[in-house]
Amino acid sequence: MEAILSAAAESSRDYARVRDAIRYLVAHADAQPRLADLAGALHLSESRLQRLFTQWAGVSPKRFIQQLTCEAAKARLATGEPLLPLSHELGLSGGSRLHDLFVTLEAMTPGEYQRGGAGLDIGWSVEATRFGPALLAQTARGVCALQFVADEAAGEAWLRGRWPNAALRWREGQGRALCRRLFDPLEAADGPPLALRVQGSNFQIQVWRALLAVPYGGLIGYGQLAAGMGRPGAARAVGNAVGANPVAWLIPCHRVIRAAGALGGYRWGEERKLDLIGWECARLAGAERAVWTA
């Protein structure tokens, strides 16, 4: 048990180090800082930082910073690629693919919504991830929540507020395998499609379905998302629905940014949003490089 706790603590420290590295790179992007500058700011050796950052992000700090500029974000928004393709494959094909992860989304019935989850059996746990502790809750028909939380008490409070009449059952470690599948770049992510079972209005469900079509490592503006849904005048309403997303990462609301390239809000913190976007972009860039050099 002590070994497990020690490993978890070290993983948490590594996440904090890389998170601080990302913040430094973004704050000093115009100066294109050298590895030595970054290492000095974090009080780490250059070799240690390079190894840790590359292991976590899949690319070097230099390549990472290239993926985080506003100009890069604007370029992705201006590509003109179809916003809502029929499929939403995540990752790349071939030997260097990131993962073959598909998500299906099903709405809870109006009756379940009105009854506050009465009759629902929800198993939940809080798992350590590279982006901080995450509440993972599941019904027999799929994942109903993935929330970044401060601790177990905050996770339970959120669940009870969302489904006051459901039977909530703490199940230690039930989401561990799924978190590894989602957040560990060294884990094989092959497996059956992931089913989501979410609570929301008809409009929210439409927005969340549209988000599933934004490709891995891609970015989209609020207005573009609204236009792609056939609701060009509803950017504000779309933004509200994006912000109400109950399933972080799997419904990728972190990929929605402002048209000018600014991050925009994020219910789990803008810094975490930056971490998620940067991690995806870096992994995608690393996989693309592997394809072209193979």
Score class of each variant (00 low, 15 high):
residue 232 P to L: 03
residue 167 A to F: 03
residue 69 T to L: 02
residue 247 V to H: 05
residue 116 G to H: 03
residue 35 L to C: 08
residue 283 R to T: 05
residue 132 G to T: 05
residue 268 W to V: 05
residue 157 A to V: 07
residue 156 E to Y: 11
residue 285 A to E: 11
residue 224 Q to L: 00
residue 212 L to C: 05
residue 198 V to G: 02
residue 28 H to A: 09
residue 15 Y to C: 13
residue 137 A to E: 01
residue 167 A to G: 11
residue 274 L to E: 09
residue 42 L to G: 12
residue 236 R to P: 01
residue 39 A to M: 10
residue 142 G to L: 03
residue 248 A to I: 02
residue 61 P to N: 11
residue 239 G to N: 07
residue 223 G to Y: 06
residue 15 Y to G: 08
residue 14 D to W: 04
residue 228 G to A: 08
residue 129 T to R: 09
residue 86 L to M: 11
residue 139 T to Q: 00
residue 91 G to C: 10
residue 268 W to T: 12
residue 154 A to D: 11
residue 123 G to Q: 14
residue 153 A to P: 00
residue 148 F to T: 02
residue 87 S to A: 13
residue 77 L to S: 11
residue 231 R to I: 00
residue 252 P to Q: 12
residue 282 A to T: 10
residue 5 L to S: 12
residue 67 Q to H: 07
residue 154 A to T: 06
residue 218 G to V: 00
residue 198 V to I: 13
residue 290 A to W: 07
residue 15 Y to D: 14
residue 229 M to A: 10
residue 209 R to G: 10
residue 81 E to Y: 06
residue 122 I to G: 00
residue 187 E to G: 02
residue 219 L to H: 06
residue 160 R to E: 11
residue 92 L to H: 14
residue 281 C to N: 12
residue 160 R to V: 03
residue 138 Q to C: 06
residue 10 E to K: 11
residue 291 V to K: 15
residue 230 G to F: 00
residue 262 A to Y: 05
residue 59 V to R: 01
residue 62 K to H: 14
residue 113 Y to K: 00
residue 230 G to A: 02
residue 19 R to L: 14
residue 3 A to P: 04
residue 163 W to F: 15
residue 281 C to Q: 13
residue 293 T to V: 13
residue 215 P to H: 13
residue 273 K to W: 10
residue 31 A to Q: 14
residue 142 G to Y: 01
residue 9 A to W: 10
residue 63 R to V: 09
residue 272 R to F: 01
residue 245 N to M: 10
residue 124 W to T: 09
residue 10 E to N: 06
residue 264 G to R: 03
residue 11 S to E: 10
residue 169 R to Y: 02
residue 134 A to W: 02
residue 171 R to V: 09
residue 292 W to R: 15
residue 253 C to W: 03
residue 118 A to E: 13
residue 180 R to M: 09
residue 246 P to D: 10
residue 256 V to I: 12
residue 222 Y to F: 14
residue 25 L to I: 05
residue 38 L to Q: 09
residue 153 A to C: 07
residue 226 A to K: 09
residue 122 I to Y: 02
residue 264 G to P: 02
residue 201 S to R: 05
residue 246 P to V: 01
residue 26 V to Q: 09
residue 108 M to D: 02
residue 193 P to A: 13
residue 83 L to D: 04
residue 288 E to T: 13
residue 78 A to P: 01
residue 202 N to A: 15
residue 281 C to V: 01
residue 85 P to R: 07
residue 193 P to I: 04
residue 23 R to Y: 03
residue 140 A to S: 12
residue 111 G to C: 02
residue 32 Q to I: 08
residue 255 R to M: 08
residue 69 T to K: 08
